[in-house]
Design a protein around this nucleic acid. Structure first.
Lengths: 339, 339
DNA sequence: ACCATTCATGAAAACCTTTACATCATCACA
DNA sequence: TGTGATGATGTAAAGGTTTTCATGAATGGT
């Protein structure tokens, strides 16, 4: 019932009648060992059921083949979808994936660093948008481990970033609305503090400018990206009595808020108003009307980020400080032709 | 820029003017060392920035303080919500959490076992509903590591299980429908092969029996728990022309299918039909009408499972082979009073 | 027939801890 | 003063690898 003692490399060596060095080589550098010897070793391994003790190996090699993933909210679907890509790529390359849920708690962020400083993880994937608390500030400066930011870039730090091209995506989204005949297009979710919101607004502006449409400041509404902020924004437009024919929302959560507000006022969607989101989160296809939106290539973001991190670990200089992947237009029912 | 050599226990010992054994004790069994010595050691640790090398420690102690979580789909929201609970509890007890995405691929399942056999993980949390491929079959029999199943029990194996009480939850759900005056209640999602479906059907039957309502076999429709199966089931009922006043669906995905079908037929929900789900997945509050359902206590399931696993690891015999937590009735708009 | 390579293997060091055991001082008690 | 117990510390082994260096055999070229 209990964990019996496992076979070690010595057991294998004894059974195969060679030294442990040879066994090690037969496993890790098969070409460096004679065919006949290799055969004997392989058989001995099979007979003993030997597996290399990863602890001993890591201790000796000074690397664990583990990657620590630090995220503020592990339950967030955005996180978990990127995680799939991260895990797939890591596993393909023989790496394991360790997860840390920080809940934006500085204490927990610091705590998780022990995995790095104790050699339990070789590299770091950051979802948090900032360096873990306890890093870059004191003398530990130069000791930053290899890391890659995902989802949100890390400002004021030289951390490579992999994410979606928000500017380009927002431009495509807005152009789609324009191509459907819309001229009065609102942007819901302005927030100068948030990089993501800023970039998406920028793409929106570029698309309008490109189509020769003047920008009406009343069409740009503040919002922090929550559903509630979307609801409030729509209400505000009714109060102001400055109505668009289409809402481009900074994200799907915001779009949902707008839809809730419009439904509550008994408008017939999408006939009377078109709504465009961004992200393609899971409920977007279920809401009525189902949401036309820009899909983030989450799986690929994860893969690309892990790929980049592993390059860094291998000592290669990264080709670029930033990898931006294109979002994909998903046409559903919330946007219709107008005019 | 590069990872400089880290301080070891010897550096600390030298600086504090004691032996490495004393340093180790000062860290792990502080009471066994004199106050003054402990002070010197603590200071030396601070000065050197020493952290114990987890690899060396694990090698010596024959345990890694890591738990491997094996799941068929890491992207599944059901998984990630339970994961939060697992991670929280593990981290609280000083354990790290390693995740493995198997995609139900036998090769990947086997592959992940190396974490166990190579001592990189001390225990296992199983989301898969079966032993990892490559276990229990050959001679490796008795060597099963400590593990706990979650989400789905493992049939024919003595693996402790933590999950929701499906029977009880289904009973409560059905009783809620009955309390709203419904007598003709359909059960959508019968499947004798699936344990979950079987238990929920059982709870449904018990509730009807308890209320003295005869069971009409035409009210029980097959389904595998997918949205499509829910849609098909509803259509089937129209073909058969045997209509209920309420649908109790084996899960929310199925309920969504039923809603889609009824909406397509332009019924006015929930006035003409009530719909009850089970699980409370994320979109349930967004669909129209928003879904009345049974909420799985996912966070607590995770915590309880990890708690149980850590007890097992500590060598304690588990009090029970199965921990069932109660689902909570979430009242939204898809169920109304009738008659 | 001799020398220089090349190739296959082995011995032993190093990676960094924890801990069993030994040592030594101190103290209480008779 | 002598004895036994107690408490603090040190020495050294053990945990299982990888890898450097050394050794010896075989090979190839002259």
């Amino acid at each position: 019932m209990q964990h019996q003692k496992l076979a070690t490399i010595e057991d294998v060596a004894a059974l195969a009648g060679v030294s442990i060095a040879t066994v090690s080589r037969a496993i890790n550098e098969p070409t460096k060992v004679a065919d006949e010897t290799r055969r004997k070793v392989t058989e001995a391994i099979a007979r003993t059921g030997y597996t290399t003790n990863a602890m001993a190996r890591s201790l000796r090699m000074r690397r664990s083949n583990m990657i620590l993933i630090l995220a503020p909210d592990v339950g967030d679907p955005n996180f978990s979808n990127i995680l799939v890509g991260l895990e797939t790529e890591a596993s393909k390359r023989g790496y394991g994936v360790l997860i840390g849920n920080t809940q934006n708690d500085p204490a927990r962020e610091t705590d998780y660093l022990r995995f790095i400083s104790s050699n339990q993880a070789d590299g770091l994937i950051l979802f948090t948008g900032h360096l873990p608390y306890g890093f870059g500030q004191d003398g530990t400066e130069g000791r930053l481990p290899p890391m890659v930011a995902v989802n949100e870039p890390v400002p004021n730090a030289e951390v490579p970033f992999v994410g979606v091209d928000n500017f380009e995506g927002a431009r495509i989204a807005t152009e789609h609305l324009i191509s459907q005949g819309h001229r009065r297009i609102a942007f819901v979710g302005r927030s100068s503090a948030r990089e993501v919101n800023r970039l998406r607004e920028e793409g929106y502006r570029r698309a309008l400018a490109g189509a020769g449409i003047a920008i009406d400041p009343r069409m740009i509404i503040d919002g922090d990206g929550t559903t509630e902020s979307g609801r409030a924004a729509a209400e505000l437009m009714f109060v102001r009595d400055a109505l668009p024919t289409a809402f481009f929302c900074v994200n799907d959560a915001t779009a949902l808020g707008v839809i809730i507000s419009l439904n509550a006022r008994h408008y017939d969607l999408p006939r009377q108003f078109s709504i465009m989101g961004f992200d393609d989160i899971s409920f977007s296809s279920f809401v009525t009307p189902s949401l036309t939106t820009m899909k983030q290539p989450r799986h690929r973001i994860g893969e690309a980020a892990m790929e980049l991190l592993l390059e860094l670990l291998a000592g290669e200089k990264p080709h670029e400080q930033q990898v931006l992947l294109r979002a994909e237009l998903i046409v559903r029912n919330s946007v219709t032709r107008v005019g």
